[in-house]
Design a protein around this nucleic acid. Structure first.
Lengths: 153, 153
DNA sequence: TCAGCTACATCAAACACTTGATAGGCAACA
DNA sequence: TGTTGCCTATCAAGTGTTTGATGTAGCTGA
């Protein structure tokens, strides 16, 4: 019986970690989407508003890097949020053709509501895992982020 | 100073867990994509082939549920993989208009190469975390999956 | 001062996926 | 033995994102 290589792939054990990571993120995204929708918002809008709130004056290009999407995708989102009156474009003081992004009052209000929803999901998960495990989980995620970032470059 | 609510959202601490989860998955996906591309494959193809390998005879609709996408998206992927000769449609013995999906030899070969790549990424992360932490990480991910699945329904 | 470089923004086309709607077949139940 | 209901597959249209390419403005070094 020397036909160990008959099986094209090993048991699913080795792939479980990445698979679980994908499933968890997929599920979390779906949940966020479900609970954000009644507020007329989608996760992508929330992420963008939150980024601008954290770093006011961000440009479209920088935002694209933060969110890991293309500048065009950001432009599309920004256009929509500007239409909704939640976001504001201001021209950069030094570079005229560059646009700084800032939240409007309506944007801050929308973000506040959305953040309450996100925080509640966060809280729900933290409660399920327990505080210690939640902290450990966050630390492990950070290490995974580091590892994949390093080996990508 | 009773203006604690001046800040629309709390510190980014409460949102760190979901944010980290998203970043980790995003990074992992990018890494998979980067290393799979030289093999002429994308993560979506890999997932599909792996699912069919694990459960031969899967139908398009069932596959859609496994992968959390719509049947149409699956049909599109399947069509491409059939063109590449890696996947085969067979009509279901009882239900004629239903198509079972099976890997071809070429598909098994492609999956084998791709799985080696994925396993190496998995191994790399496991090594970084350490075996104990990797196991704990997988367990925590499973719990998160459970939690979001339960609260979605 | 003036090339060359870099970075931002944006237009246009291609692509992938979703939502919505249609058709056909099997099965269970009256 | 119809007939209702569910599930599958697939077509068509709409949406969001990426890829590719263009124009423009500031920075840098000769």
């Amino acid at each position: 019986m020397t036909r160990d290589d008959d099986e094209p792939v090993g048991a699913d054990a080795p792939n479980r970690l990445l698979w679980a990571l994908r499933r968890a993120e997929l599920g979390a995204r779906a949940l966020k989407d479900q609970r954000l929708r009644p507020l007329g918002m989608v996760p992508a809008h929330y992420s963008l508003l939150m980024s601008v709130h954290t770093e006011p004056g961000l440009t479209g290009a920088e935002l694209a890097r933060r969110l890991d999407v293309t500048p065009q995708a950001v432009a599309s989102l920004v256009a929509r949020l500007v239409d909704k009156g939640q976001l504001e474009r201001r021209s950069h003081p030094r570079h005229r053709h560059i646009q700084e992004l800032h939240l409007t009052d309506a944007g801050r209000e929308a973000l506040k509501s959305a953040d309450a929803v996100i925080a509640s999901i966060e809280h729900q998960i933290t409660e399920r895992l327990g505080p210690d495990n939640a902290a450990r989980f966050a630390a492990l995620l950070d290490e995974v982020i580091d590892e994949v970032r390093d080996s990508k470059s």
